[in-house]
């Protein structure tokens, strides 16, 4: 079940739209934040608060790539490998993460520190290769730079 503040937050979001159903996407974001990932329990909570059938909620959530349907590491690396990033070496970075952090696409490090998600274009092609760690852009990546960045996350 969601806590009071989260429920309040949802009710405020709900008022931005003509229908409760429309608040589903933001609501799922909130549930993901509160539960860490989108378990059945998380969807039941969303369904409860918005009065949207739970199967519908899950079906909608399952459509979108940025909703996480299994437990994630403490920090989520979202690395772009689309064409602009690829031709500037994104694949080498994928290998680098595999070799130096034991981090495979879709996987999580044993210590639960990082999860790696391969992204389609994240709109940083001009400064490729690029990635998001949690909510921050990191661009013009190189192996050293990645090491430098990841050092800051525990």
């Amino acid at each position: 079940m969601l806590n009071e503040t989260a429920i309040k937050e949802l009710q405020e979001i709900r008022n931005k739209y003509p229908s409760a159903r429309s608040a589903l996407l933001p609501a799922i974001y909130v549930a993901q934040r509160e539960f860490g990932w989108l378990s059945e329990e998380a969807y039941e909570a969303v369904s409860e608060v918005l009065g949207v059938p739970k199967a519908i909620a899950r079906g909608v959530g399952a459509f979108y790539a940025m909703y996480k349907h299994r437990p994630m590491g403490r920090n989520i690396i979202q690395l772009c490998t689309n064409v602009s990033c690829m031709i500037l070496g994104a694949e080498k970075l994928v290998d680098y993460l595999k070799n130096h952090y034991g981090l495979v696409p879709g996987g999580t490090t044993e210590d639960g520190r990082f999860s790696l998600v391969i992204m389609e274009c994240i709109g940083a092609c001009g400064t490729a290769p690029a990635m998001l760690v949690n909510d921050e852009f990191y661009e013009n990546l190189s192996e050293q730079y990645i090491e430098e960045i990841l050092a800051k996350f525990t």
């Binding site: 933001p26 979108y64 790539a65 992204m119």
Partner: peptide, 26 residues
């Protein structure tokens, strides 16, 4: 107000976008 998508290229297509805005599969 801002409505945040959740990672679906197709939601750039205007009718899919509207579905998504209404809280549906895009």
């Amino acid at each position: 107000s801002v409505h945040q998508g959740a990672g679906a290229y197709i939601c750039g297509e205007e009718t899919a976008l509207i579905e998504s805005l209404e809280g549906d599969r895009g």
